[in-house]
Design a protein around this nucleic acid. Structure first.
Length: 575
RNA sequence: CGGGGUGUGGCGCAGCGGUAGCGCACCCGCUUUGGGAGCGGGGGGUCACAGGUUCAAAUCCUGUCACCCCGACCA
């Protein structure tokens, strides 16, 4: 039985569905607007939604596709609890460091419980209890389960929510080669899933954030309403999330610095104004920014033509929280905001971006004195530089490391995969005996797809005006059947016949048998914009015809009954 | 967490000191029936909550909460 038959055809006279003529106030995102107007979802609380029958059918179809592809890839379905003891999270060390902070409550015996935002801890614990030998490996597990995250700001309807269903998979291998195979298999499965949802995604290098691990890729559906920014090279050989993206930095010939000089720069605090005032290029100025992370401070120095990428910096510092220090904090450190520099500052560590070492030298920096800068700075002579790393943010127009020009695009992250390695198995002691009888850490990967977000992303990708145009693979029904005159015996008889005959061939129909104006039916049908529409009316039946509309091919046709059935039989073959 | 905005019937809104109204939706009747129908009748709101001012508060003051948008943040 295919998913359409499983979910079944329905008659509106005995269904729960309401559409809205008016747009809800303040909803900026198109998918949110359409999801609300077409009766897919109802909001319960900020970032928390109920799915109504039509919406849930789409979700079920997406989950069905995901499960099929997971199963085909060899992954095994499991189920893990949403409510978990905080003990597991103490072991992994994420109890107090997970971002956003975990939702916790105390149970009746006063044990601290958490509402799981993800399941690495649980799955690692489960596997470590049941794996002893390298003979037990490899395998991949998955579930589709509710997650809860205290998002600081839910937005865009289903695009960013607090409670959501995620397909999360976890692979377990005995060595790096095995992990690589599992990782690639999962990427291939993801590509099929997104293809079947008619979603064009780009795979980009990504930061692994709170999950941890080394290698990580995101599946990004390009859309202007997306929150993520990705950089893609012109030759398509490099694509990365801006959080992670590396680029080829400009090099300049080294200039010889003459004697260091203190200069007056009254009220000149920005690179731009300094550049104009001194008539020098921005890359000849060093920019210093002070960051507060966890409970420490650090200074960052980067060449004036680049900006700091806070994700790169956070990763280097292994920090949980990171933000620019406030003016007050900078003053308390004995520095002068607007005229900062690492020059002769000993109570603070400084990190230098690689660009600082790539010329031209002879820099201008702040003097740590109000309204003054220093010029003719020689790196070796005037500064003590120990830590040089990449903390620069890539931007559109920069070059990828192969020289191809980068373009910035916005997108929605619909999937994310990570090579975790032994990050969790080390902390949670998930071992196996290798073929020499020695203990070794299990190597893990983890792989996520947000189900609701994928639905929203598909709508963002396919919408036109007031229609969501979901692909047939995930639209709530395949066909909208409108009987225009419900009090006409023949109209209703033919409609019923079509309804049951086409349902039998594996297509699901939404039969609009309400006794309302034709206009109401057409408008609701347009909003839902199912791939096919059948109109049965007095007018057509007098000619012995049935009207069929094929959305994707923008075709309207009139066919007799037998050919109508034939037409849909052909359609059902492709599903 | 910072900035801005909004809370009045299911939805969209008006009223801004004198005890609540409109459109849509809903219910009943008649007419209508290929693009959100017409006429007539009807039901539904402790005006987010809590204090306060006043003879009188949806309306003024104070506080709280919720939701939305921008930013910060973010698998």
């Amino acid at each position: 039985m295919n998913i359409n038959s499983f979910l079944g055809s329905k008659k509106l006279s005995n269904f729960f569905w309401k559409t809205y003529r008016e747009n809800p106030q303040n909803l900026e995102t198109e998918s949110h607007r359409l999801l609300h107007r077409s009766g897919f979802i109802t909001q319960v609380s900020s970032g928390i939604f109920s799915f109504l029958p039509v919406g849930w059918r789409s979700i079920e179809k997406i989950k069905h596709i995901i499960k099929q592809e997971m199963n085909l890839s060899g992954a095994l379905e499991i189920n893990m609890p949403v409510i978990q003891s905080s003990d597991l999270w103490k072991k992994s060390g994420r109890l107090d460091t997970f971002i956003p902070p975990l939702a916790k409550f105390n149970d009746r015996r006063d044990n601290e419980m958490i509402v799981a935002p993800t399941h690495e801890e649980t799955v690692t614990d489960m596997v470590s209890k049941n794996v002893n030998s390298y003979r037990d490996l490899p395998f991949t597990l998955y579930q589709i389960q509710t997650k809860y995250r205290e998002e600081p700001r839910p937005r865009g309807g289903l695009l960013r929510v607090r409670e959501f269903e995620m397909k999360d998979a976890y692979s377990f291998d005995k060595d790096l080669e095995g992990l690589d195979v599992s990782y690639k298999k999962m990427i291939a499965a993801y590509q099929k899933i997104f293809e079947r949802c008619s979603t064009d995604v780009v795979i980009v290098d990504a930061d692994s954030g709170a999950i941890g691990g080394k290698e990580s890729n995101e599946f990004i559906m390009l859309a202007d309403s997306g929150e993520d920014v990705v950089l893609i090279s012109e030759d398509k050989k490099y694509a990365a999330n801006v959080e992670k993206a590396i680029f080829r930095k400009n090099e300049y010939n080294t200039e010889i610095s003459s004697k260091m000089e203190l200069i007056e720069t009254v009220g000149i605090k920005t690179i731009k104004s300094l550049q104009q005032a001194l008539n020098i290029p921005d890359y000849q100025i060093l920019k210093t920014v002070i960051y507060k992370y966890d409970s420490n401070f650090v200074g960052c120095v980067i060449r004036g033509d680049y900006d700091i990428n806070e994700t790169k910096l956070r990763n280097y510092l292994r920090a949980t929280y990171l933000e620019p220090a406030s003016e007050k904090e900078v003053l308390e450190l004995g520095l002068i905001p607007g005229f900062l520099s690492p020059y002769k500052i000993s109570n603070l560590d400084f990190i230098y971006d690689e660009s600082v070492k790539m010329g031209p030298g002879n820099f201008v920096i702040g003097a740590n004195i109000l309204d003054k800068h220093l010029k003719n700075i020689d790196l070796d002579r005037d500064l003590v530089i120990s830590k040089v790393i990449d903390i620069a943010e890539a931007k559109e127009g920069y070059l990828a490391s192969n020289g191809s020009v980068l373009t910035a695009k916005r997108g929605i992250e619909v999937g994310h995969v990570f090579k975790l390695g032994d990050a969790y198995s080390k902390k949670m002691n998930a071992n196996f005996s290798n073929n020499e009888g020695a203990d070794q850490k299990i190597l893990m990967g983890c792989y996520g797809i947000g189900v609701g977000r994928l639905l929203a992303a598909c709508i963002e990708a396919n919408k036109t005006d007031d229609s969501m145009n979901l692909p047939i693979s995930i639209s709530p029904f395949s066909i909208y059947l409108a009987a225009l005159q419900t009090d006409d015996k023949e109209v209703m008889e033919i409609s019923e016949k079509i309804f049951s005959e086409i349902s039998k061939i594996g297509l699901d129909i939404l039969f609009d048998d309400r006794s309302v104006q034709p206009g109401v039916k057409f408008n609701d049908s347009d909003l839902l914009s199912l791939p096919y529409k059948i109109v049965i009316s007095r007018r057509n039946l007098e000619k012995g015809m049935i009207e069929i509309e094929d959305r994707d091919n923008a075709k309207k046709m009139q066919l007799p009954y037998a050919e109508t059935i034939e037409f849909f039989k052909n359609i059902s073959k492709d599903i």
